[in-house]
Design a protein around this nucleic acid. Sequence first.
DNA 1: TTATATCGATAGAGAAAACCGATAGAAATA
DNA 2: TATTTCTATCGGTTTTCTCTATCGATATAA
Lengths: 318, 318
Amino acid sequence: MTLQELKYIIAVAESRHFGRAAERCFVSQPTLSGQIKKLEEELGVVIFERTNRSVEITPVGEAILAHARQIMEQADTIQQLAQAQQDPLAGPLRIGAIPTLSPYLMPLILLPLTRQHPQMKLVLSEELTDTLLERLRNHEIDAALLATPVSEGELDSLALFDEPFWIAYPRNHPFYEKEKITRRDLDKENLLLLAEGHCLARQAMEVCHIRERQRQGEMADLRASSLETLLQLVGAGFGCTLVPALAMRGSWTTDSGVVAQPLALPDASRRVSLVFRHSYPRQRALRAFAEVMLDNLPNTVQLVDPGRRAKKKTGRKQ
Amino acid sequence: MTLQELKYIIAVAESRHFGRAAERCFVSQPTLSGQIKKLEEELGVVIFERTNRSVEITPVGEAILAHARQIMEQADTIQQLAQAQQDPLAGPLRIGAIPTLSPYLMPLILLPLTRQHPQMKLVLSEELTDTLLERLRNHEIDAALLATPVSEGELDSLALFDEPFWIAYPRNHPFYEKEKITRRDLDKENLLLLAEGHCLARQAMEVCHIRERQRQGEMADLRASSLETLLQLVGAGFGCTLVPALAMRGSWTTDSGVVAQPLALPDASRRVSLVFRHSYPRQRALRAFAEVMLDNLPNTVQLVDPGRRAKKKTGRKQ
DNA sequence: TTATATCGATAGAGAAAACCGATAGAAATA
DNA sequence: TATTTCTATCGGTTTTCTCTATCGATATAA
């Protein structure tokens, strides 16, 4: 049995004429006759009772026809499903992001995204890097916004931007007087860190040349579970900390006694990338998503493609 | 899209392994890979996301799969429909019969039929010859029991038996004294006839050498609408009439003052045949039906195949 | 009755496809 | 590094589908 054969019997049943049915199916009449005969032989059933001047469907034929119509309907639905999917942006895109990035980046891009790609739907999740990588491998999410590099064989990543780390300290702190804060300044400080598992904690230690062991002894009991908590701790005078630039776009200085200022260190930043499975089929959708992100980032971050901002402006003028 | 391709994606989805799926479909792995790739290209959609060590179905693939399963289910149903139909006796057989035959023949065969072919279902109808022929042409019935010959190009007929005409007359009629009734006797009689349209009326006139015109003038007002009525008229003394042998198997003589006796005329009979469309596909079912009929006829009729009764008896002894 | 037209079935040839075995290529495992 | 395990790819073969041309039967028209 073939979908084609079912199409043929539907055509014959509706036109009650082999010639016209063949025409409707864009095949010759012998082709159609042959195929129907083949189907009838395969099923061992006569579907059409035909003489030279009449084609009538048998009772079994009628029953078969009903199912054939349903099959063709289902097949149509499959075609339509595929068609709807053709727009690579359509269909929900499941994106995960790390907690030190998601709450500050997503608000910047959600509105522009719905403006530029109204058909695109996002399903967001916020998890630690390791969890995101596992969900990525399990096909539970389509892509993740991470601080890279991450070592994963079957994952590809698209580098988006470098996000500098700022130093946050209480207003009564000596840093408040300084214009430039160097690494030597940092070495003397009590650096507050995020809880285990946050990549930002490890990166902050690297920037400040703090070794794991040294840290553990010192202040294992003072690790915050979120950036917001961390800044509360800073405001309460427990120390200072490194925060990613995007988290500092509010008016933290005036509100809570916490001052943030850029670090005068060349490598005090993290590279944010969009990570996805090497075999992921809708990479065009991901790229469109990334484009919108890059077009809506503040100047506090440096795009990996430095020519991008210029391009964007000239693009708008044309 | 092909039913085969849908089978393939179902197999891959269920085994999550191209090699094993191919094995399950009795094809080689390259064949299956190629077919799935072709389907994906045709739909413009990736159904399976595959790496060297994992095969995962995409969300669209999942949706397509659901419909594919429904399609295969419908296809299975078609196969089963055809299978059930394979028994040519199964499925209702729509049989029409003329009114002068049906009430006397059918009671003889219904019981033996259900005994011999329990799966066979009959749908009976009783109409005049012309109506039956038209319903036959319109595919509203599958076969008709008629007095033949009937001139119809696209119809075939299977001759069953010759049913003699008997003469029925009131008990006080001079025929009661006679042992043999010849055509010369008939000529003098007032012959009652069935209403227009009954083939029996025409046949009776032919047997008695009555011409149409002559008849019309004489007794246009005395034509019965059924054999029962006709016999009532005979009993009431309005004349005598010809009745087919099967209608005379009861005890008419004693009950109603009507006497029936065979005619001593060689051609005073009608040939009863099973008539069906030349293109009718279930002729084996008809033949089985005819066999049961022939095996259960009384000796008052002559089978067309004279060796039949003997065969039947020897058959039972073995 | 004889020509003409219509319709489905059939025959033979050509084109398309499905399929297979062998093998490449990539990744994990030993 | 060698081996194993997968899927993808490559030629070549076989099957199937499709075509044109034609037959045979029937109905219509002359």
